[in-house]
Design a protein around this nucleic acid. Structure first.
Length: 267
DNA sequence: AGAATTACCTGAGCGC
DNA sequence: TGCGCTCAGGTAATTC
């Protein structure tokens, strides 16, 4: 389950290896992802050079000059970079073969990922145009969060997981950030003070940046685990002792998502 | 408009 | 061994 840090680590790795390289062949074995892979992708890409690789939320954006290749890894997707072309395994849906012999392979068991082609400004793509500010930029801060949460009746955890509010915050880091901010995930958004919103915005940035740092060992070329579960303070630890006070962590469901927090430490 | 629910998909884990 | 069930979860679409 790649979240923003995993996508960013993937972006950095691919950027260092693939910028300046051109596609020679694209093999689409399975086109039925979250939305259909464009039928003409295999005809469009060969000959095009990757100019740069950007990220918006959890979307990877490959600048191919005449258009943009958009990739979202969904829940279970990942991009593997192989030095030589090898035979595909199960769930290896798309192969991008580069002119230096590299093979970029899109693998996604649950097919929640997206691969799309878009000409023009990628930020105007229908899936990107409504996304909120990047959490690692100054556009996302306490005042912004305070204003957008004002009058809203949803739980704060659901608010920060709304991609229209802030980009790229998924279930794992929402749980972690709220624990670090000492704010209960089920607090009604409108009841948060400006100070609490400032704390929350800061710790969201912290947990994401720390994870990007730890992800430096993440190897795109291999099927290594992108996460560092030992680093999670609450996610996946329902019933286990809180690292802060020792009392058992509570596990509830918010918006049908597993939510873990400490009743004692989070207010 | 905002909130809640549903749909998409497969592997893992579990009880029987 | 294997069947059926539940869970995991990003996000768009749909419904209330």
């Amino acid at each position: 389950m790649p979240e923003l840090p995993e996508v960013e680590v993937t972006r950095r790795r691919l950027e260092s290896e693939l910028v300046g390289k051109s596609f020679t062949q694209v093999l689409v074995r399975v086109a039925k992802l979250r939305q259909p892979v464009p039928k003409d992708l295999a005809a469009i890409l060969p000959g095009l050079k990757i100019r740069s690789i950007a990220r918006r939320g959890k979307y990877l954006l490959f600048d191919c000059g005449s258009g943009w290749l958009l990739v979202h890894l969904g829940m279970t997707g990942f991009l593997r970079l192989l030095r030589v072309v090898s035979s595909p395994g199960k769930h290896d849906h798309i192969d991008f073969i580069m002119d230096d012999g590299h093979l970029l392979r899109f693998h996604d068991p649950r097919k929640f990922g997206i691969v799309d082609w878009f000409t023009g400004d990628p930020l105007l793509h229908p899936l990107l145009s409504g996304i909120g500010p990047e959490p690692l930029t100054d556009a996302f801060d306490g005042l912004y969060l305070f204003n957008i949460g004002r009058g809203r009746k949803i739980a704060i955890k659901q608010l920060i997981m709304d991609s229209a509010v802030v980009a790229g915050v998924g279930n794992i880091y929402a749980n972690e950030a709220l624990f670090r901010a000492r704010i209960r995930p089920d607090r009604i958004s409108g009841t948060l003070t400006l100070l609490e919103c400032s704390t929350l915005a800061s710790v969201i940035r912290e947990v994401l940046e720390e994870s990007i740092g730890e992800g430096s060992t993440y190897r795109v070329a291999e099927e290594s685990v992108a996460y560092h579960p030992q680093a999670f303070k609450v996610y996946g630890r329902g019933g286990k002792p809180c690292f802060n006070c020792g009392k058992p962590l509570d596990e509830i469901r918010l918006g049908n998502r597993s939510t873990v927090f400490c009743q004692n430490c989070q207010k």
